[in-house]
Design a binder for these strands. Structure first.
Lengths: 218, 218
DNA sequence: ATATATTTTTAGACTAGTCTAAAAATATAT
DNA sequence: ATATATTTTTAGACTAGTCTAAAAATATAT
């Protein structure tokens, strides 16, 4: 169907469209893909010819319907494999990404259908991100950043914005896990750090941390 | 480490060394890889520079120690994935090959180590072929072809020489499965076909069939 | 032993994806 | 409104892997 490279570009564009709903720029994609702008232009031309993106020279681009469907199916594979790695192969949530980046390109409908069934049709991956179903449907949780909560508000930790291994390891060290309930005890106006109650203990976290934790308010 | 293409060549050479223990020829490898002799020459030069094969121009080639270890580790991955597909994802033994061809190239020691454990350290894949352990060791069963058995001899069906989907589907249709006991009732000298007793019933199989079934004599 | 057939290698071209450097287009500053 | 800065694209080169056609080496037949 598509090359690994094409699939990686589609996935990257998908993620960037969150940040740039009006359209993604060549430079933004080059940075995301860790490549040069000229390489991006070449690839975008190719994706455009294949009707995967809508593109007008110098005007940025967006995924087409077909491109969106393809990107979502890659993300579905990626996240299903992440669940497999954590639930069945004892990987921790900071170890799954690298391997899932490879596994997401395996081409077999039967494989993914059966993997989904084998895992019990999971709805979220180990980082709390939604897993699209076979039709590409998925529900985005109504969530806010911890840094947006005010004193006295409470909620459940349901996802991370930064899913880098270092950040996830930091959360492990602090015993912060998906599903934990928490409450804002106090917010320091000077540096925006917050004192939270979580798992029966009080914890102070900086703005850098609270800006990367998604909370579902209760 | 190595590219998909390099890994596929190494695997193909490994298999051909069974048939040509003295060394593999360019043409033989080209046929196996479904490519042209000139492409093979180019790749062999590359593998030779990387110390994966021993090669002298016009003289054929063999895997080096490093090449052999690499090939065995790819085969280990391939066969472990085949077990996974059959045991966990409801694939039948004629459906696994294509997907395993893709999965065998995933690079992660942790993944394979954990997959092996998850599957209970299987010793054979769904076709009866041995699965190398993490050190690359595996035991080849002492087996003969059904076509080499004489009237009155008996044994257990332990493997297939031809593992094509069509042959495997044929065996399914005849209800012949790995582990079945069988006995030669009669052998027709004219066309070498044999009448066997298997699963409480008598079955006549042609030389083409009996020449592709591995039997462990009892 | 030599001619002929076969196999293998070489030379040069092509594709996908990448890069650097320069050109072109667009955005920004005054 | 125009000069300057920034972004994007183009041109041309490189690598990995492939191909065809021709050359070189080896094997075979008599």
């Amino acid at each position: 169907m598509f090359t690994f490279s094409e699939e990686n570009y589609l996935k990257a564009i998908f993620h960037l469209e969150r940040k740039f709903p009006a359209g993604v720029s060549t430079n933004a994609l080059a940075e995301e893909m860790e490549t040069k702008a000229s390489s991006v232009t070449d690839m975008i031309k190719k994706l455009s010819e294949k009707k995967l993106v809508n593109y007008k020279k110098y005007q940025g681009f967006k995924l087409s319907k077909l491109g969106m469907e393809t990107a979502v199916s890659i993300i579905r594979k990626h996240r299903l494999w992440e669940v497999f790695l954590v639930e069945k192969l004892n990987f921790s949530w900071d170890e799954v990404h690298e391997v899932a980046e490879q596994l997401e390109h395996i081409k077999s409908e039967q494989l993914i259908r059966e993997l989904d069934r084998f895992l019990g049709f999971p709805k979220r991956d180990p980082h709390g991100d939604p897993i699209p179903d076979a039709e590409g449907n998925f529900t985005v949780l109504n969530k806010v950043l911890l840094s947006d909560l005010k004193k006295g508000e409470s909620g459940i930790f349901v996802g991370v914005k930064d899913s880098s291994a270092t950040f996830l390891q930091f959360l492990d060290k602090r015993n912060i896990a998906l599903g934990d309930e928490l409450k804002i005890i106090e917010k320091e106006p000077f540096d925006q750090s917050v004192l939270i109650k979580i798992n029966e203990q009080e914890l102070r976290v900086s703005n850098l941390i609270s800006g990367n934790l998604y909370i579902k308010t209760t």
